[in-house]
Amino acid sequence: MSLAAETPAASETILRRNLATFSGNRLAMLCALIVVLFVVMAVFAPWIAPHDPNETDLFRRLQPPGWMAGGEWSYFLGCDALGRDILSRIVYGARISIFIGIAVILVATTIGILAGLAAGYLRGWVDMVISRIVDILLGFPYLIFAIGLMAMMGPGLWNIIFALAYKEWVIPARVVRGETLVTRELEYVEAARALGASRGHIMLREILPNVLSPVIVVATIRMAHVIILEASLSFLGLGVQPPTASWGSMVSDGRAFILEAWWVSTFPGLAILFLVLAINVASQGLRDAFDPRFSE
């Protein structure tokens, strides 16, 4: 029985309603703001960073943060083993993390949506082939798979994106396939067929808009994973090559001096932590707003 009013204001669309729910969640909004700050930092890195991230100065080798004895306020978070400013490197490192995160998710989600729609709507052998590929890829441990690919292709920005997207697409593909299987049985899809609509029209115009919400939610959650994976690859020396600043390789660089110069590893580590945490909390807020099935 429907108790709630069924006639909200004429302008209210589902998207608008979801966004209203999301903006009512203060913690999620705060985290979304943090993510936005990181993105701004990445985009405007040359203006924000106090120093050139690659400028070495052996006089400042392992210089402590500004508030510690021997530190300098203009090198707020201290310097690394080559005397480079850690704050500047973190600011520039955000570019790598965020760019790779977004690029991998964009590529993977596009492939995943197309594969999931095809598998879920066309069924038959298309579904067989796609689902088997998905099963096989899911069988490999993610990081080892990526390490293997990187070892084969060699390090480099585009290779990282490729290595991560190679497996990442199965996640949205599975989500889209599952949603499509449910949606294709709904009467409005049947109605479109009864009206003479083509498969392409049904998949892209009728089904896709209705399966997009969970995909967006999953994409944001996975972006945090991808950022961690990129950091892990860089930590292992398989990521972007020096001297380009990357949070993972910065943590790795500081390993040797962790006792005498803890700041070298700690601050980039904290940057990873804050960004990933902020994305996770924000995406949970998104999930509650866009996909109420999951919230309590």
Binding site: I14, L186, E187, Y188, A192, P209, N210
Partner: peptide, 12 residues
Amino acid sequence: FQDPYACLNPRR
């Protein structure tokens, strides 16, 4: 169709 809820695409 029977189901007035399922027979219309909610996004259109």
